[in-house]
Amino acid sequence: MGVKKGKADANTLAMLPQCEQLVIKNSIPRYRYGIFDIEKTGKGIQVLNTNLLLTGKDIERHLSGCYGIVLMCATLSGNIDNLIRTAQLQDMSKAIVINSLSSVAIEQVCNKAEKEIYSTLDSSCYKTWRYSPGYGDLPIDIQKEILTILDAPRKIGLCTADSMTLTPIKSVTAIIGLSHTPVAPAKRGCLCCNLRNTCQYRKVGNHCVQ
């Protein structure tokens, strides 16, 4: 919301709980996931029993030492698109707050999904952080294939548009590496983020991820 150093005024603070309620009321969080073995080939990392090939140096580094991956996707549903669209006509500042809160909400849905996924895994298994298509040099185009593999259009109503953007708007696809040995880096950082050059948080020395 353009936060740098200042403090929010009373109007903005008053808007937060109200918008939070709207986001909670209108979200219908849904997610899908699948666990796959992977194999390194000359062309990239092949996700076994699928036609998905993960290419690029960054994903290779991210998955180094991993025997398999979790493919996951999540969405807050199109209701949130409607909510943001309508709010923009009624009160743009409210729309900005709702938009920001929805971005937080979809990350929370992913966190919850991760917990569920991990509960099904062997407790000795090590996990990388969630890596999404479009980070670093991993092409964003593979989102369509990931959604197809997870049957996401049919099962949770999550699709890609022609430009490979996800629809509904507040949605995520991600890849989590699974390893028998500790993985590094264990945390997501700025260096692999596409927004690192223009990020408002980073400019003032902050991070968007704890």
Binding site: M1, G2, V3, K4, K5, G6, A8, D9, N11, T12, M15, D91, M92, S93, K94, I96, V97, V204
Partner: peptide, 17 residues
């Protein structure tokens, strides 16, 4: 004020509204 971080985007837009 927005540029210097005194106010946030929602406040700027409230003023604009």
């Amino acid at each position: 004020d927005f540029e210097t971080g005194k106010i946030f985007l929602p406040q700027l837009i409230q003023s604009a509204t």
